[in-house]
């Protein structure tokens, strides 16, 4: 693009006012594996496609436990995703030490967005990873998406990674606030399968209002597929 014009100086804004580096980082996220989150008042479910690997290599973990009530998943460069996960886990434990309580989902998300924002105002590489954070706190079941720009969204349906537009479309059409856990799992499966088409594995994580715990789902996965 304009990189030749820019010469050796680090640049931030493109001619149209877009943060060029950040846009590239978002493109990197769009190359990642299809990853999504769906939320109702009772549950939030995180799902991510596990990229098929060679027979002797285990696929990388995609659903991460952050704290007992909080989980996250991400898409983009896996190293960058892992850095953000580490940052979230650190934030959760710091909150425990400071307040003797579990971090709320908004604070966890905002701290991460603030961390990412730092990489947009200096001549450094913004992290090429978006994450979806889901958890339970006194305000209920909450879900956030945080992007490389430092932008965060609160909501009930998110999709990031390859084919996220199509995936989100499936979620929007299939969503209703009263979906059961099984229905959420099948909707998430459908939304990912629309994009991937092959028999790739999906990893799930669920937080429910009844026990206020975030847990990785392994058993129900088999029944759905």
């Amino acid at each position: 693009m304009e990189s030749q014009q820019a010469g050796r100086m680090p640049y931030f804004y493109g001619p149209e006012g877009a943060l060029v580096q950040v846009d590239f980082a978002l493109e990197a996220v769009n190359r990642g594996s299809t990853t999504l989150g769906i939320r109702t008042d009772e549950y939030a479910i995180l799902a991510s496609q596990l990229k098929p690997t060679r027979p002797l290599i285990d696929p990388a973990e995609k659903i991460y436990q952050i704290d007992e009530h909080l989980g996250a998943t991400g898409a983009g460069y896996i190293g960058d995703v892992l850095k953000l996960i580490q940052e979230l886990r650190l934030g959760a434990q710091k909150h425990r030490l400071t307040f003797d309580s579990l971090v709320d989902i908004k604070t966890a998300s905002e701290e991460l967005s603030s961390y990412l924002h730092q990489y947009t105002i200096y001549a450094v590489r913004p992290l090429g990873a978006s994450v979806i954070i889901a958890g339970s706190d006194p305000l209920g079941i909450q879900m956030y998406q945080v992007d490389p720009s430092g932008t965060y969204f609160k909501g009930s349906g998110f999709a990031i990674g390859a084919g996220s537009e199509r995936s989100l479309d499936v979620i929007q059409r299939g969503y209703s606030p009263g979906l059961s856990l099984d229905e959420l799992v099948s909707l998430a499966t459908k939304a990912i399968k629309t994009v991937t088409q092959d028999e790739s594995q999906i990893e799930f994580g669920v937080v429910s209002k009844t026990n206020r715990k975030f847990e990785k789902l392994t058993a129900p996965l088999q029944t759905v597929r």
Binding site: L97, T98, F99, D100, S101, D104, K106, T107, E110, D137, P138, L139
Partner: peptide, 18 residues
């Protein structure tokens, strides 16, 4: 302001004790 609901009494005490 940050999280949308106030600190509990226990959380507040923990702030002082830290």
């Amino acid at each position: 302001l940050q999280r949308g609901y106030p600190l509990t009494v226990k959380e507040t005490t923990k702030l002082i004790s830290n």
